[in-house]
Design a protein around this nucleic acid. Sequence first.
DNA 1: TGGTAATCTTACAT
DNA 2: TCTCAAGATTACCA
Length: 353
Amino acid sequence: MGISGLLPVLRNIIEPRHVSKYAGKKVAVDTYSWLHKGSYGCALELCTGAPTDKYVTYCLDRVKMLLHYKVIPVMVFDGANLPSKQGTEVDRKLSRLENRSKGIQALRADNRSAAIEYFQRAVDVTPAMAYKLIKALRKLNVECIVAPYEADAQLAYLNLQGYVSAVISEDSDIIAFGAKAVLLKMDKDGYGEDTCPRYRQKLLGACSTMNLSGWEPERFTQMCIFAGCDYLKSLPGMGIKKAYAAINNIGGQRAPLDECFVRAINKLRLDGTLVPSDYLKDFERAYLTFQFQRVFDPEKQMLVTLKPLPEVRDTSFNHLDIQAPLLSSRQKHPLAVLEAHSLTLKLASSRAH
DNA sequence: TGGTAATCTTACAT
DNA sequence: TCTCAAGATTACCA
């Protein structure tokens, strides 16, 4: 889903770019999107259980294209699901099952083209498929990294640490996570859209309605959450523009739930926006997920957080005792919030290797 | 009219 | 043992 309305707003500052710009450098790939695209060409086989490796071939062709241009791919895979996202996945799973059974019916009625159409709506990328690709990639000596949780956070970390020069992705979430150089919508020939050229600075001149000059990255992330993201549905009537306006009126504080932020929420409520009672708590959890999600550091060979954790005594979090009862005094450390909603690290760790 | 919400089309590859 | 759709177009609302 990504961030609602973000890419159209950024369109003015996105430039066409060929991947050969990164020749001689490492580039991280959001592999799921490639697997997903590659699945469409073999939807019938995947849904009927017939053997196929077309999706592997699809991904390998793209990897070979990168290698042709001397770009060194680092293939990143999703790991465990974040429990906070499980709500929507149930609906999607039901929809896929429904389309699959319709496809089987069409197949029995000898309507092959209709069956394929249904199956294309039913295809699902499974960990088994990802593993099959990983084995093929290892034969080519291509580096693979399985994220503890979401690939987006992992990709952003690799980019922020300088482990890779850019990220190839289809998802605007990667920008909210803070990645510095992103090549969006790259086609099979290596052409894509680059958000690298100092998008925050250029945005101020490119778009008269949104001026992000002087914005801390944290505030940009907050705007993205406000506009509606995978972790938190936006308030009714709230889109990217109103999110910008709401955040822009807040002072330059870094903390998600400082007094200024709470005041902005209260103002929205006074203006007639329906703000659920636990919106602040949910907003904070979304913010912490963007900032401190667990990722794997390939150099240290250990799990770390995307951004360094603030000190427990950081005064910017002190107000949480009052504004967000979610945090008990024993759980004041931001990470405690995430851990409470996460699967066991044991699982994440075993998947990272 | 601007902005948001809902709906439709494409994706792959031959 | 089986992971995420996204962009463009149109419709609706204050």
